[in-house]
Structures are given as C-alpha cells and as structure tokens.
Design a protein around this nucleic acid. Structure first.
Lengths: 206, 206, 206, 206
DNA sequence: AATGAATGAGCATTCATTCAT
DNA sequence: TATGAATGAATGCTCATTCAT
C-alpha cells in the first residue's frame, strides 16, 4: 500500500512530493473542468501555484500528467481493494466490497471521476495501455474472487470468469459514468448494492 | 428502413447524399485509426477524395462530423432495434434481440466501433449531449422492454428499471470496448448471450 | 542557368514562384539584420507580406529557408561563373573572371552577403553540408581552371591544385567578410584585382 | 607566458582560476560538439563538474563564455606569436613563423578549432566585436611584418599592406576551416608551407 | 458545387538566469 | 563559494476554417 504509493511516484523528485502532488491535484481539477485537450499546461501551473516551467521538473509532458493521475489512482485503488478483501473469506462479500469501494472512491472525488470516466477514454493509445496495465490487474482481482466462489460451489460453474468480471466491471463503470453526467445529484456508492443484487442473483449456483 | 434513411438525412445536405456519405465514411475510418484529435480535416478530405473546402459544404465543423457519425448510427441502431422487437411479445426475447443487435452492429464495423467506444467518450461536452440525445432513447428502449416484463410478472418487481437498463447497457458496452482493445480476434456478437444469461438470471422473478 | 534556377526551386509550388521568392527575399533581409537565430518566422512573414502559416506552404521549416537561400545563390553563382568562363580560353583570365564575379555578386547584395559570410557559418552541421554540396563544386571550378593553366605550362607544376584553389577562395572569402564588417563603405569587386595580382604572381610558372 | 596568463585572468575571477578554467575548457568541448546555440549552460556545468549556478559565479552569461574562449585564445596566440618573432629579423621568416604558429595552435586542439572556425562566425554582432578586438591586432601583426619587408625592399612596394595581410589570413583561415570539416584526418600545420610558398612568391619584390 | 491557397490564432516546451539556502 | 530548484519569457509550427475563383 504505502509502498505501492511510493514506488509509483517516480516522477516526483522531492521527498514530500509536495509540488508534484499539488500539480497532480491541480491537473485533475483542470482536466475535469475543461477536458484534457482544452486544458493548457499554463492553466495547470496557475492552478497549482507554480510557474509553467516547474511542471516540467516533475512531469515530462502534459500527457505524462494524465498518465500519472491514472497510475496513482489505480495503484491506490488496487491497494485499498486488496487490503479490504484480504480479511474476508466469503467470495460474495469480497465482490461486494470491491464494488462498493469502486463507487465510493469515484463518488468521493468528482473531478477524479470525470477524468477517469471521460478524459481517460478519449484515446485508443491510452486505452490500450490502460487496458494493459492497472486495469488488467483490477479485472483480475474481480475474476479471482469470482473463481473462488466457483470453486466453493456458490457461483455457477458454467460461466466464464473472465466475461463475468467484465460484466460486473462494465455495470459499475456505467453507474459511474451516468453519475458524472447526470444533472441530478445523488450518491454514487449506494448504486453498488443494486448492481450486486442483480449480478449475484445472476451468477448464483443454486 | 425508410425512417432510418430519413433521420439520416439531416447530416447529409445533398440530394444524392453521395459526398456527405463518403465524407462520413472516410471520417469514421480516419478517426478510428488516428483518434479524433489527431485526425486532420485534410486527412478526411483526402480519404474521401474531395478537397478540404468541400468538407465544409457538408458539415459545419470537424466536431459536427463526429456528431453526425454518432447521430446517424444511433438513429440507424434505434430504428433497427425497434423494428426487430415490434413483432416480438416476450420481453426476455426483446432484450435478447436488443443486446444481440447491439453487439452485431458494432462487431460488423470495427472502425465505427472504435469511434463509438473510444473517440466519442473523450469529452464531457459530447458525453453530456450524447447522454441527452439518442443514448437516452436507447436506454429507454431497454427500460420499456424490462418494464413490460415486470408488468407481466416475469421480472422482479423490486428492481429499478432505470438502473437495470444501465446495468445491461454497461455490461454490453464493456464487451464492446474490450473487443476493440483486445489483440485477439474473436466474434463480438456471441458475447451477447453470455451477458444475457447472467442478466436474465439475475432479474428473473421466480 | 534558368534551368538551374528552376530545378532548384523545389520548395516553390507556384509556377511564378512569386510568394516563395518573396519569402526568400524577405528572409535574406531579416536574417541579415537580426541574425538567423534571432529572426522569428513571424518577422519573415511580415516582411514578405504573408501570414505566418503561409511560410510553411513554401518551406518546411525555418532552417529550410536558410538552406534555400544558400542553394539558390550557389546554383546561380555557379551557372553564372560557368557561363562566363566557357568562352574564355586563357586560364589566368578564367580565374580572374571567377574572382571578379564572386565579389561582384556579394558586393551587389549586402544582405545576401551578410547571410553568406556570417549567418551560414554558424553551424557545423550546415558547414558540413555546405562543404559537401555547392561549395565543393565551386572550388572544383577554380581547381579545374588552375589545372588547365598547369597543363599549359603557365602555372607552377609543383603546386597542389586543390590547395591552390582553397587559397584563392580563402583570400576572396576574407575580402568579402571584411567588407561586410567594415564600417567604411567601399566597393568590394575591385578587391578581386589585388587578390588576383598576388595570387597569379605567386603561382606563375616562370 | 606571464603576459598570456595575465591577460587571461580577466575572465577568471578566482585566484586559483581553477573552476573558471575548467568551465572554459568544458564549454569549448561542448560548443565544439553541439554548436553554441544547441549547447545548454547545464551541459557545460555538467561537463565541468559544477552546478549550473556556479557557472554564473565565473561568467556573466553564456555569451560571455564564448567571448572568453575567444579572448583567452587570441591573447595567448598573440603573445606566442610576438614572442616567436621578436628575435627574428627576416620579415619572410617572421611571416612564416606566424603562419606556422597559427595552424599549429588550431591543429593541436580540434575542439578549440571548431569553436574558432565555426561557432564564432555565426553572429554579426560577435563578428563585429571580433573584428574590432584581438583579430585587428592579429592582422596588424601580419601587416607590420609585411611592411618591414616592404621597407627592406624584399616585398613589392606597390601592394597595400592591409589587403596583403587579409589575403594571408584568409588563406590560412580557409585551410583551418577545411581541415575541420574534412572527413580525412591529416596534419594541419604543414599546410602553412604551401600557403607561404605561393604567398611569398606572389609578394616578392624581384 | 468544388477547389485548395491562404490565413492566423493557439500552445507545449525549453533553457538562460536567479536566489534562497 | 556553491548549489540546484524554480522561474517565466519566448517561439516554431499546426491545422481548422475561409473565400476568391
């Protein structure tokens, strides 16, 4: 966890990671409000309270900032999810915790959620890396939990765990995207239960 | 059908619709290969075999081209879906047809699928309109079919039809995105059955 | 000559070469006054009376403009020199004409001369290409004329024609550079005679 | 000699002159390899083994470094040349020594030669100062020696000593530039004899 | 309708220089 | 003296859009 966080911060030169951290937060805000392509590096710098050039002491390019936001968040989310489920033995409960955490995290930081649900999707190039990196691990976390349940006889053995994982992820992802785009303000996290309800019912063995 | 062709005409200004059509097809190809932001209007013009300026006789801007691709496809898809289900009475079967058609259409035109699953997601602005326009109608089609099933007592009455529709859409959407990004070449349409299997099982009344 | 000029103009798209020509002239003026590195493309555009972007319709980069100035001038100079000496049989007179033409051309266009004597010398990279391209041909013209004289017994046979050519070129080049840098205004072309006087006396056979 | 070392000290502020000296040497290397405009102060600092800021404790600006390289070298060269010829009385021999020393010094340090023959030529501004400062003195040294010869009746009295000096310098300068740019590796100093041979023959009184 | 030459606003990035430590 | 993190001014180039033909 903490180590995951630290390892990931290879762009941040200072111990405290103060400036780099501030730039990342500023960028998340700016990207969320203007979109990645309409955001100027100068906007990020101003928002972070540093000079334009300073941004480049911490990140190699505007694109690297976007990647760093993703990397850091996925790493954090993975670490948090792993920590949550390591003490749980019931696969159903594991999936429930993963789903809940997923929506809780996005629901807690709307700007980050916008970047995740919208800005990060806009390039095949990134989507491919995205798919190859942390996302694969995340899907894998869901799949393993499901497979445990299959081995325990609680989930239907005839289902392809890979596909099942994508279905759950896709449903949660859609909840998040809809929440972002909705004019109405509602809590995102509670949606996890509705998704899980149908999902678990659908994959139940009996 | 006719209605589809008619809906379609609001992007294409010319009687023959030939050039406008060609530009749209060219743009789909170009966007799919280079991404929206990296595609130049000049690229589209060359691919369509017309001069740069000609593009602007058919579309107001580069962005309008993207929107037109979306509009036309959603209109087509909606029309096709409506036609398919109007003769079916079983709600379960309706949902199955919708899902199958969804993946069949995307699976039949990879370039269009890339534009839909990736390029169209990259801007909050577009996503909002997207959500407001055809997409809402599409979700509504799913929701109505589900509600019919609820009224008929075949689907659980305790479920929020709106959320259920999003879950199904999200799952299908994820199948499509994964298919796009996957290195392996497989058929997309058959995934519909696996999704439906779990979904229907999950929402079944009994 | 004219053909040399035409062949060389591969950057200029229009038949008349009007705009491209104007940009080249403007660039020569601007480079001569501010130096290559301190000249902005915008300055050149303004001086040429075109928009910034137009410059890039005719030249790939700022650097290509500098190269084009060089290429065009060397081609012109070579063609002119060849034409002048083709009807002359006396090697001494050939060398005299080459030298005179050399200083006449530079003396006739101070801006061009500044670009040639100063701006073009500032990069090893360019100097290497410079040396490899037109310049080599120019030196070769001098050398051949000298060798003719050697064969005719009028120039010392013990001299290395290559070195001799460089000596003459170097002396003329220095005249040009000094003329550029001098505060006093004097005619450059007449210097050719003083150089030739010593040079021919130095290489004379008798 | 002492005078050389003293002249040198106006660039180097420190007593030991160690760091300033190291920076100058590093800069010569860096400029020679990347060109003045492509060389970063940070490159020089790294090459010299000091921090970026330290460079500014010894030199006011990047440009001053270039100037200092020039100043130091010209001062050294002038001192060396003066010392060599002060004991010689024959004007022909004086010129021969000056020419030989000129090419020996450049031939002994290729990096310095590159800076002298290429990098220092790239700006009118510098060329003007260059012309005004040490270079004028250097030319003057040649001219005086030639005038001595004229007074002694060994050199043609009809020649303009100023022009003659430039011719000799120009010829030597061209030898040096060609040597820099040549792919073939040969000794530069021996070229002095070939130049002198023609030159002296050309200016001889008889 | 069609062309494509011309436009010019827009922006990521670099790097010489400073200054607090 | 020495450091090196921080600064911010400066600019070549791209490309969506226009418009005279």
């Amino acid at each position: 966890m903490r180590s995951a966080r630290t390892l990931n911060n290879n762009s941040v030169r200072v111990a405290g990671g103060d400036k780099g951290e501030a730039i990342l937060r500023a960028a998340t805000r700016v990207f969320a409000h203007n979109g990645y392509f309409n955001s100027k590096v100068a906007d990020i710098a101003r928002e972070a309270g540093v000079a334009d050039g300073t941004v480049y002491l911490y990140f190699k390019s505007k694109e690297e900032i976007l990647h760093s936001i993703f990397d850091r968040s996925v790493d954090d989310a993975l670490a948090a999810a792993r920590k949550q489920i390591e003490l749980i033995s019931d696969p159903r409960e594991k999936l429930r915790r993963i789903a809940l955490l997923h929506l809780e995290r996005l629901g807690a930081d709307r700007d980050l959620a916008v970047v995740f649900q919208v800005e990060l999707r806009g390039s095949t190039k990134f989507m491919e890396e995205f798919s190859a990196a942390g996302f694969a691990e995340y899907l894998s976390l869901i799949r393993s939990s499901f497979e445990e349940g299959q081995r325990a006889g609680m989930f239907r053995a005839d289902l392809n765990a890979n596909v099942v994982a994508k279905i759950l992820f896709g449903a949660l992802d859609e909840m998040a995207t809809n929440w972002i785009l909705s004019k109405r303000r509602y809590k995102l996290a509670p949606m996890a239960d509705q998704v899980l309800d149908i999902f678990l019912n659908g994959v139940n063995a009996s």
